[in-house]
């Protein structure tokens, strides 16, 4: 998963032609770290349809706040520069996958 920060978020996420999945995480967040293997697995399966990126919130807090992230981990899905869906609560691999499927529909 490609790391994205405040400097290239605009270009890599909002300006992307493909839908983008953003994982907002922090090295202090144990739940975020536990979720990563599941996200990597999803990336393998869906990388041709969705771009997977991650934002380290401990270094990009303003960006996260502006994107209305209030709890970690948070998975946001963007298409054509807009957020179309999000998993904020009870974030599991399965919950993320079902959101991906909805967005791809």
């Amino acid at each position: 998963m490609q790391p994205v920060d405040k400097n290239n978020f605009e270009q890599e996420v909002l300006g992307s032609r493909q839908p983008v999945l953003v994982d907002f995480w922090s090295p202090n967040c144990e739940k975020c770290i536990k979720l990563m293997p599941a996200l990597q697995e999803l990336e393998q399966r869906y990388h041709d349809k969705i771009k997977f990126v991650k934002v380290d919130v401990s270094k990009n807090r303003r960006l996260a706040i502006a994107q209305k992230v209030r709890n970690l981990p948070a998975i946001h899905l963007y298409r054509n520069g807009e957020r179309v869906d999000a998993v904020n609560d009870q974030v599991t691999g399965e919950a993320v996958e079902s959101t991906i499927k909805q967005v791809l529909h």
């Binding site: 922090s26 202090n28 739940k31 401990s58 706040i65 709890n71 970690l72």
Partner: peptide, 10 residues
């Protein structure tokens, strides 16, 4: 939130 260490950064 129910987890401070998860979310404190924000």
């Amino acid at each position: 939130s129910y987890c401070a260490t998860c979310d404190a950064d924000l």
